[in-house]
Design a protein around this nucleic acid. Structure first.
Length: 865
RNA sequence: GCCCAGGUGGCGGAAUGGUAGACGCGGCGGACUCAAAAUCCGCUCUCCUUACGGGGGUGAGGGUUCGAGUCCCUCCCUGGGCACCA
């Protein structure tokens, strides 16, 4: 039954059809069947307290249009939604008010779900997931154990923001201008124990996997740059003192080796203390302290003058025995390469600047031209390629040959080898927070570890990696044992306070009952340490207190949608083989690197585990742009330019909002909101109603039976619209699809007679964009719901072209007339007719015709001189 | 500094190397109305011209082409990203 309104009332029509879809399970995906599948995925939202933003539905509407379209094409469509609900805001609110983050999160999810449901998306709500649900995060922990088992987890000290005043670790976004966002206290970098994932082990595959993805080029480029693979040479420089430790450096320019005039170590380099001579010790220690206290911003500011201190030590250049002073400077990063460089000031801008500052020698070894040609040597530093000079036997070689030859020589001398380096660093996977997935590890002593490791068939032993994961806790070396899959989920304990522990651990470290346990070395069961010691395989253990970052839950959610209620497995293999990975993934480009790289990493690991059948999670990716405020600025409370989707829906309806967001401009562009623009869309939808229905809400008089005559313009417009809307949907060009539908409606509104079939086919085209109105009119025109079940229309090629074409006639590229002729008219006839046009003839008068350009169906151009 | 995207009417934007400005907003004029709203019709890049016509025009300058918003080079501007990666 349609509603009984006589005119377009979205406030009544939209809830009506949303109820219909829900009751009839119209968009619930079924079990695997013979139909081709189509899996459309949106980046799921973080349910913030602010409620839905006008930007959220932009991507959701786009994927909804695709999904509804594919359904009409006969595909079995999966379009799910869920919540990325761990995260900082709920935690910060908990610290401030004591409200449990689970309560805040549940309330926010209610709001988000209600708001999203107002849009009438074709979402299968039976598959809703929530990353904070233990039934979900047990599988996040399960994947962590897979990584652990594969040796992709280790524990190391990594620098993080530490605020001594708050006695807490801060996230980057909590640090503003070197001070804590809360309270404005000073912060410093401090190395704390962190759980780290060895994503670098997958660097080459993450790079290679990009090749075949249908992703925006810019996103692929960003990922490539982030991984930052480079090929070079690792060179050993012995230190010139009695103990002769050896400096390992990495360079992409071994061809400049003869130009090395000094060495630099990062302040954090482990050999600094060992090589520094007594008289320089104090200065070096000072410098290291300063560097440690500096923010990344200070250290990486390019405009800053180079700083550094001499260690008093020298190294020997293995290629020519030159004695090079070793400096410590913070322009060398501990985290890249080997944390040490050979400095070639003549051919590197940074080294040049440093050498100038500290009066160090500069030796040219590359000329852009081969020696003997009369080109002048360019100003230094010269960072390009060229031919070697002042380079012993290697002088005269090209940079490329020299790189190979010098590396070969070093290999023979066992003082170097080819090496590949990545800019990508391992992934710090721990947070000193409450509101995240607990890391399923416990820490035990060495003997207990060895007992557990001796039995590789037990639940614990099966998940142990070949090499022990160790860490120093309270000054003692401890060994990690997994909380095995059988014992998952490892849930968050209730806590007294959400404040961090104060010594760099999460609030979980304060929960003595939870923290200290008896752990069964084989089964992985745990009991509170306060209980009587059971003995035997039960050993004392301390739980890992770190929780996982927000990325964890979003790394694999696309997989859980396939089988969200399965308590036995992460996903049923048959379902996984059917649905595989999303066919389309829509979300913001702000996730171009981190989320999309981490998710690919996990997916590749799951592929290696045989859990998923595809090597890549997101085959086709699209970034929607940002909707800016009316003033062209980013929407924000402080600017007062925020548009609330609920208000817009109340005023104009969800269909109007959906359509308008798609009509604003290309999906991928940033574009400003225009409050008057939505009026235009509202008018369009009302016009659709008035064109097809009379004042009584019954089919309009202009609607005629399918056999009856119809205005040719309407027929032509229909087929043009079918063709254009279909092509535009597939290419996610919704703004032009909507323009075309407007053209159709403008034509139809003027037509005397429209066949019912024409109207119905138009409604099918409209349905993915404005589904409520389309359903309402579909049924009012006598069809049974739902329009989404109807097979997508095909254009009739006979009506696509016209049998008349219009030629633009130019003389010397300037438009001088138009010529309408039959489609079939040949070149000579068209040219003759064109020459006969009055204005053309006038412009050809008295000129020499040099050339006649004829493009069939398009244009004629006479070139005269 | 480097990388990426983009500069088209008053505004959002459209245009496989082939009539620049579709569609929408806004504006102007008209119809309907006692009036208004809604709706419908027409006009709406700019300059010259009463008109007919004609000139110019897609950030600037050059180039390729019969023909350039579209391709190439240089430059300017805006937005986004990355930041000493050896």
């Amino acid at each position: 039954m349609p509603t009984d309104c006589t005119h377009y009332e979205p406030a009544r029509i939209e809830p009506h059809w949303q109820r219909y879809w829900s009751e009839h399970r119209t968009f619930v995906a079924g079990p695997p069947d013979d139909r081709p599948k189509y899996y459309g995925l949106d980046m799921f939202p973080y349910p913030s307290g602010a409620g839905l933003h006008i930007g959220h539905p932009e991507g959701y509407t786009a994927s909804d249009i695709l999904c509804r379209y594919r359904k009409s094409r006969g595909d079995h469509v999966l379009h799910p939604m869920g919540w990325d609900a761990f995260g900082l805001p709920a935690e910060q609110y908990a610290v401030k008010t004591g409200t449990h983050p689970a309560r805040t999160t549940a309330a926010n999810i209610e709001t988000f779900r209600r708001q999203i449901q107002q849009f009438g998306f074709a979402i299968d709500w039976t598959r809703e997931i929530n990353t904070t649900d233990p039934g979900y995060y047990r599988w996040t922990q399960w994947i962590f154990l897979k990584l652990f088992r594969r040796g992709l987890v280790y524990v190391d000290r990594k620098p993080v923001w530490w605020c001594p005043e708050l006695r807490a670790v801060l996230a980057n976004e909590e640090v503003v201008d070197g001070r804590s966002e809360v309270g404005g206290h000073p912060v410093e970098r401090r190395a704390l124990r962190q759980v780290v994932l060895r994503i670098t082990a997958y660097a080459d595959r993450l790079l290679a996997g990009l090749e075949d993805l249908d992703w925006p080029d810019s996103t692929k480029r960003q990922q490539r740059a982030w991984i930052g693979r480079s090929e070079g040479t690792e060179i050993l420089f012995p230190v010139d003192n009695k103990r002769r430790p050896v400096l390992r450096v990495y360079t992409t320019r071994p061809d400049t080796l003869f130009g090395a005039t000094y060495m630099v170590l990062a302040p954090e380099h482990p050999l600094v203390a060992e090589i520094t001579t007594a008289e320089h010790r104090e200065a070096i220690e000072d410098y290291r302290r300063q560097a440690a206290a500096k923010s990344d911003l200070d250290r990486t500011d390019l405009a800053r003058e180079k700083s550094g201190v001499f260690t008093g030590a020298h190294a020997i250049n293995p290629i020519n025995g030159a004695r090079l002073p070793i400096w410590v400077a913070d322009y060398v990063l501990a985290s890249y390469g080997t944390g040490a460089i050979m400095a070639v000031p003549a051919h590197d801008e940074r080294d040049y600047e440093f050498a100038e500052t500290f009066q160090l020698p500069i030796q040219r070894v590359i000329d852009p031209e081969r020696k003997g040609s009369n080109g002048h040597s360019p100003e230094l530093p010269y960072t390009g390629e060229g031919f070697l000079v002042h380079s012993g036997d290697f002088s005269g070689l090209s940079s490329e040959d020299a790189r190979r030859e010098i590396t070969l020589r070093l290999e023979e001398q066992e003082e170097g080898r080819p090496a590949v380096n990545y800019r990508l660093r391992d992934w710090v996977f721990s947070r000193q927070r409450y509101w995240g997935e607990p890391v399923p590890l416990v820490w035990v002593g060495r003997e207990d570890y060895e007992r557990a490791a001796a039995d590789r068939t037990s639940p614990v032993g099966r998940v142990l990696p070949g090499e022990a994961v160790t860490a120093e806790l309270d000054g003692e070396l401890r060994y990690a044992l997994p909380v095995p899959p059988e014992e998952l989920p490892l849930t968050l304990p209730e806590v007294e306070s959400f404040q961090p522990s104060g010594d760099g651990e999460s609030p979980l470290a304060n929960e003595e009952e939870w923290l200290h346990v008896h752990f069964h070395l084989r089964t992985g069961e745990t009991r509170p340490a306060s209980a009587a010691a059971p003995g035997g395989d039960w050993v004392p253990a301390r739980r890992e207190t770190n929780t996982m970052p927000q990325w964890a839950g979003s790394c694999w959610y696309h997989l859980r949608y396939l089988d969200p209620h399965n308590e036995e497995r992460i996903v049923d293999p048959e379902r996984e083989r059917y649905w595989q990975a999303p066919d389309l993934y829509i979300g913001g480009s702000e996730h171009a690197v981190l989320h999309l790289l981490y998710a690919r990493f996990w997916h590749q690991v799951l592929y290696d585990e045989g859990v998923v059948s595809t090597p890549e999670p997101y085959r086709r990716l699209f970034h929607q742009g940002i909707i800016l405020g009316e003033d062209g600025e980013k929407m924000s409370k402080s600017r007062g330019n925020v548009v609330n989707p609920e208000t817009v829906i109340a005023d104009h309806g969800a269909d109007a909002l959906r359509l308008f967001e798609m009509f604003l401009g290309p999906l991928e562009d940033s574009k400003p909101w225009n409050p008057q623009g939505i009026e235009g869309i509202s008018r369009f939808l009302k016009k659709v109603w008035r064109t097809l229905l009379g004042p009584d809400g019954q089919p309009a008089e202009r609607l005629v039976a399918d056999g009856a005559a119809e205005d040719e313009a309407a027929t032509r417009a229909l087929h043009a619209t079918i063709a254009k809307v279909t092509a535009d949907i597939e290419n996610l060009r919704f703004n032009t699809a909507i323009s075309q539908m407007m053209i159709f409606v403008n034509t139809a509104a003027r037509a005397e007679a429209i066949r019912r079939g024409t109207a119905l086919r138009f409604l099918q085209l409209l349905a993915p964009f404005a589904p409520h109105l389309a359903e309402e009119l579909w049924e009012r025109l006598g069809e049974a719901p739902s329009v989404s079940e109807a097979v997508w229309p095909e254009p009739d090629p006979d009506w696509l072209g016209s049998d008349r074409v219009t030629y633009a006639v130019q003389v010397n590229g300037k438009l001088r007339g138009e010529l309408e002729v039959a489609d079939s008219t040949g070149r000579e006839e068209v040219l003759a007719a064109a020459r006969g046009l009055e204005k053309v003839a006038a412009n050809l008068e008295g000129k020499t015709l040099r050339k006649e350009v004829f493009v069939p169906g398009k244009i004629v151009n006479f070139v005269v001189g």
